[in-house]
């Protein structure tokens, strides 16, 4: 802060050289030189700015001070905005990386939809998905669970719109061809997407999703047999991470309530519903 710039702030008792002298005794001579220089300069300037000082004697608020104030204010505003954005980004990143207490359910897969399109785990991103594994010749549990999923999707879509993707993955690929899946699913909620594929692909997908099933690899496509399999409905978040598994005993209302809670948590963290 030079005396020529801020003459109104200078007082003899509080010159920077005095403060310097107190703090660094080794620099006394240098500081004294500066002070001597400043003082001589100050004396010259003092007379020069005397009239200015008189005018500003009412206070320290000069156009210069105002400018410094505004610049500092604007600077701080942008600084804090930047810091806040950085913090939010960090929190989001933490959430993405959060893996403690989360089951490792899910993984990469490429299967075929009931309308004969390729579908991978990446196509699930950006939506809350409900995944169920079963087969079309299932006597009673699968159709009941699929009807339950349909009811859940209907009531959730009323409030949130189409941000849900129910998926039915076949564990009986020998019999569940693409047209078979299409005919079967025409009886259920229109949003339910059927997935089937090669035995090996289905097996690998089931492994990633921790789903057990009993179909042998060489099953007769025309045979009359049942498949023993896990009957959980998985809820996955818009980033494809596992959230919860619902068993047969979970009612439609319970699942809807839980999904609402999860969307609320998600919204609090990301500012978005998906």
């Amino acid at each position: 802060m030079s005396a020529t710039l801020f003459p109104f702030l200078r007082t003899k008792s509080l010159s920077p050289s005095v403060l310097l002298r107190g703090a660094h005794s080794s620099r006394v001579s240098y500081a004294q030189k500066i002070q001597a220089h400043n003082n001589s300069k100050f004396k010259r300037c003092y007379s020069q700015f005397r009239s200015t000082q008189d005018r500003t004697a009412v206070g320290v608020f000069t156009p210069t001070a105002a400018a410094v104030f505004v610049v500092t204010g604007v600077g701080l505003f942008y600084y804090f905005r930047h810091e806040k954005a950085k913090l939010l980004e960090q929190r989001q990143k933490e959430m993405e990386e959060k893996s403690v207490g989360r089951a490792h359910v899910g993984g990469p897969f490429v299967l075929t939809t009931h309308d004969n399109k390729s579908f991978s785990e990446k196509d699930l991103l950006g939506k809350w998905s409900m995944m169920y594994f079963g087969f079309t010749n299932c006597p009673d549990i699968c159709p009941a669970e699929l009807d339950k999923i349909g009811g859940i999707v209907t009531s959730l879509e009323k409030d949130y719109g189409r941000i849900f993707q129910p998926v039915f993955i076949s564990v009986d690929p020998a019999r569940d061809s693409v047209p078979q899946m299409a005919r079967y699913l025409s009886d259920f909620h229109p949003r339910i997407l059927g997935l089937t594929g090669e035995y090996a692909t289905v097996k690998q997908t089931c492994k990633a999703y921790r789903v057990y099933f009993s179909t042998p690899p060489n099953a007769d496509p025309a045979g009359d047999y049942l498949v023993d399999h896990s009957i959980y409905v998985y809820l996955m978040d818009p980033r494809g991470n596992f959230v919860e598994a619902f068993g047969q005993s979970s009612t439609e209302e319970e699942v809807v309530e839980r999904v609402r809670k999860e969307i609320g948590k998600w919204e609090a963290q990301t500012g978005k519903k998906v």
Binding site: N137, Q180, R183, A222
Partner: peptide, 10 residues
């Protein structure tokens, strides 16, 4: 029996 089974309808 040789034909592929059609899915059971509702």
């Amino acid at each position: 029996k040789s034909e592929q089974a059609t899915p059971v309808s509702r």
